[in-house]
Simulated scan of single mutants.
Amino acid sequence: MKPQFHLPLTTHPEASSFAIIENAIQFSLHQGADLVASLAAARRHGHEAAETYSDDDEFQADRFDRDVAAQLVRHLRERAERVALDVRLVPAEAEAMSATMRLAELARAYDVTILENTELARPIIESLFFDSGRPLLLLPSGDFYGRIDNIAIAWDGSATAARAASNAYPMIQSATKATVIHECAAAPWSEDLLDRYVEALKHSGLEVALAAVHSDGEDVSTVIQDTAIEGHADLLIAGAYGHTKLREALVGGATRSLLDNLRIPTLLSH
């Protein structure tokens, strides 16, 4: 059974980069997964995207979107063909106001959705967090090799962290090493639970190290990323938005800090 990875291609509010296409291809190739690319084609004012509009500005914007979309699809197909990766392209048409919700619904059909972490993509990222029910592989800007041998798991014993670790399975089947990062003051979970989790990972065939860290007033997400990077992790696994959506919007939180300064490929799950 092959994992099915999902890559949304967008032209608005910003165009997907060629880098995210290359990264998605490499991650899919190394994990033995198929790649499904969805092309978001928003309809304006209830019309099909291909129609001619009386408003010249709107027509020009639509023509630009279609030209950019054609470039993205061409690049995707050329790169995938070069490495013999099976790629399927599916449309994701929706009214412009509901495009992010449509994308979250589409993501439910696949094991993992891959996105580049940018400020303009934040509404799409948060919609996928809350509404897709699927994990999100979030990548910093830049190129990544795609092989996942060494993973880091942000573990606080919560149901959110446990769900994130479980949802990561399609991405980590080739891993041989794991670092369990435990922020000592993060939660009151028992040491017995932590020991049991480390033991379970070892029995699964991983070489496991435990990193107990103290934030000491520093941002927790920074400490976690620093520890993962120092351990040469290829992927960080973390639960997303442990508090309510309203509370996160009002006071921020570790997840929002992570998004503001993402430096390592991270699999997030809510």
Rank of each mutant, 00 (worst) to 15 (best):
K2C: 06
P8I: 07
L9G: 10
L9K: 10
S17K: 04
S17I: 04
F18G: 06
F18Q: 14
N23D: 05
N23I: 00
A24R: 07
I25G: 07
S28M: 04
H30E: 12
G32F: 06
A33M: 02
A33P: 02
D34R: 13
A37K: 11
A37L: 07
A40Y: 00
A40M: 12
R44N: 09
H45Y: 15
E48G: 13
T52R: 13
D57P: 02
D57I: 07
Q60P: 01
R63L: 15
D65K: 01
R66W: 07
V68Q: 12
Q71A: 09
Q71F: 06
E78W: 00
R79P: 03
E81S: 15
V83R: 14
P91W: 07
A92G: 08
S98N: 14
A99F: 10
A99N: 01
T100L: 13
R108H: 14
A109C: 11
V112W: 02
V112I: 15
T113Q: 13
I114R: 07
L115K: 07
E119N: 04
L120P: 01
A121I: 06
A121W: 08
A121P: 00
I125C: 04
R134W: 04
L139F: 13
P140T: 10
D143G: 12
G146H: 03
R147T: 09
N150G: 00
N150I: 03
A159L: 07
Y169C: 09
Y169Q: 15
M171Q: 08
I172Y: 05
T176K: 15
V180L: 07
H182M: 00
C184R: 14
A185G: 14
A186C: 06
S190M: 03
D192R: 08
L194H: 03
L194F: 02
H203Y: 13
S204A: 13
V208F: 04
A212S: 14
G217P: 07
E218F: 01
D219A: 14
V220H: 05
V220N: 07
I224T: 01
D226A: 14
G231T: 05
L236C: 03
H243E: 13
L246K: 11
R247T: 10
G252C: 08
A254Y: 05
T255R: 04
T255H: 01
D260M: 09
H270C: 10
